[in-house]
Design a protein around this nucleic acid. Structure first.
Length: 485
RNA sequence: CGGGGCGUAGCGCAGCCUGGUAGCGCACCUGCCUUGGGCGCAGGGGGUCGCCAGUUCAAAUCUGGCCGCCCCGACCA
């Protein structure tokens, strides 16, 4: 393992992010496959914990998992006009298979609305078949020009929920419900505060009637769209002939939703909590929550300290804490501390000769770096309590950062003044709350600043209606403007 | 596609100007010694110097061509 230093955030935030991802052993670029990455065991373990939290909630809200093909007939993409327009530039297409040119090429799914729409049309006849609530865990491919580990890669892992409903209201409620699930996971599992809101018409998903999103703020002040949930209306229902007979005996098209989060969340996690020493993981996502580091000077200490370390780790495990002992030979304690620190382990349990003699250990928390001696008696309880505390404190710190970097603006020039100097490298980003009309020409002017309207928040905390700073028309509330990933 | 940069050990780089048997740091292996925040010492393994051609007694080094990658811009759920 290399001992390369991590570039400080203040020097170059983008370089810092890469360094943290490497040093924490989360992932590396798949050098031989442009734009793709290898998610390494530690990174994948974080993803698995996140998946488990999400999957449990999907099932609790009545959804079932299924799996649809990776390859989609090219013609399917064309059936929904906006959808094809939105996705065709970033499609990878299979034209040859089995040594022969295909009659009709397949695209590698960039998302599955189309092929799932096709199967929904076969599965749904009656209102009794509705709602149909499906989720798929899958990989997708989008040929992006510029990629960054986790945040935007050519291939990525995600889940996509696809549902069909008998009424518009029910579909709308579903889209909203799933956004709330995402917000719950972001806030309470990832300790990452988010703003829930509606995308502007210009920013909505290709083929949707309305898109909802949760937006998080990274430590450089840039926004990250952390999850989206779409009301598809009857657009895909019409395109794929997903008809049902309603209670009145009449044929109608279903109202659909789709919603997704991806491995991008791991990028968000890194950029929300980590520091200049490396990764910082919230306890609820850490694959290892506590690591016992034995410290011994002489061979005579060695056996006693190692066996006590193993016993303490076993006790922690019995209490449901993901714990292990770092009993690797040939590494100094200092080396081990750095090792686990870079990997974001929330709690380190130090056990040396002095502690052994006094029946204590030293607990160190990753987020604040604070150390405290605690008795070996009752270690499981004190560790569990401390983990809870770390989880809460991390959330509070991130919340505080988001609040303190949210500002209001009363004119376009003011928005420009705040956002123009902001870059992913230098940081300084803000969420600028301003009155803006939901109209494509307005979005276009914000785009010219290399910023975007992130969302129109559900909850208005900035004083209600006002005049659009570009058109002068009255709009109901301020929207979030920011530079984003 | 426009501008800039770079290809030498697993990673990061020096050597190139001025041609003469390929080096440094980290990582890796062995042994001894250490262990409360990246131990030390000694020994060791690992290279078609991006590819092709040319010049030359001799090319990592000079010349020409090609390929690949990175950054900035454009593009972008």
């Amino acid at each position: 393992m290399s001992q390369k230093k991590i570039t400080p955030r203040s020097e170059d935030f983008a370089a810092w992010y890469q360094d943290v991802v490497y040093q924490a052993d989360l992932a590396e670029p798949a050098d031989v496959v442009k734009g793709c990455m290898v998610i390494k065991p530690h990174g994948y373990a974080v993803w698995e914990r996140l998946q488990a939290e999400l999957d449990r909630r999907f099932k609790e809200t009545g959804h079932k998992n299924a799996y649809f093909p990776l390859l989609i007939p090219e013609s399917f993409l064309r059936r929904e006009a906006e959808h094809v327009e939105g996705f065709s530039p970033e499609l990878a297409v299979v034209t040859i298979a089995g040594g022969k040119k295909l009659e009709e090429p397949y695209v590698i799914r960039p998302t599955s609305e189309t092929i799932i729409g096709h199967f929904f049309s076969k599965w749904i006849q009656s209102w009794r078949d509705l709602p149909l609530l499906i989720n798929q865990w899958a990989n997708v491919v989008r040929w992006e020009l510029r990629t960054r580990l986790f945040l935007r890669t050519t291939e990525f892992l995600w889940q996509e929920g696809h549902t069909a409903h008998a009424s518009e209201e029910e579909a709308r409620a579903e889209a909203r419900r799933m956004l709330e699930v995402y917000a719950d996971v972001a806030e309470n599992v990832m300790a990452m505060p988010v703003i829930k809101g509606t995308k502007t018409q210009a920013e909505k998903f290709a083929g949707a009637v309305k898109s909802l999103s949760i937006e998080a703020m990274m430590q450089n002040g840039l926004a990250l769209q952390a999850g989206t949930s779409h009301e598809l209306g009857q657009n895909f229902g019409r395109a794929f002939g997903v008809k049902f007979q309603n209670r009145d005996g009449q044929l109608d098209y279903v109202w659909q939703t789709s919603w997704g989060v991806s491995t991008r969340l791991i990028g968000g996690l890194v950029m929300t909590h980590s520091d200049d020493s490396g990764l910082v993981l919230p306890p609820r996502l850490a694959p290892v929550q506590a690591v016992v580091v034995p410290i011994y000077r002489k061979d005579t200490d060695r056996d006693a300290i190692l066996s006590r370390s193993h016993a303490l780790a076993a006790e922690l495990k019995r209490a449901g804490i993901l714990a292990e002992t770092d009993d690797r030979e040939g590494f100094t304690p200092g080396n081990k501390f750095f090792h686990w620190e870079q990997r974001g382990v929330p709690l380190t349990v130090e056990l040396g000769p002095r502690d052994l003699a006094e029946n204590k250990v030293v607990l160190k928390r990753r987020d604040t770096g604070l150390k405290q001696p605690v008795g070996q008696e009752g270690l499981a309880e004190s560790a569990a309590r401390l983990l809870e505390c770390v989880q809460k404190d991390m959330h509070a710190a991130a919340r505080e950062r988001l609040e303190s970097r949210t500002v209001t603006a009363e004119s376009f020039d003011q928005v420009r003044g705040i956002l123009e100097p902001v870059t992913a490298e230098k940081g300084g980003g803000k969420f600028v709350m301003a009155h803006l009309k939901d109209a494509p020409e307005v979005d276009a002017q914000i785009k010219a600043l290399k910023a975007s309207v992130r969302c129109i928040p559900f909850e208005d905390r900035y004083g209600g209606a006002g005049q659009c700073i570009l058109t002068g028309e009255t709009v109901p509330r301020r929207v979030v403007v920011a530079k984003a990933y």
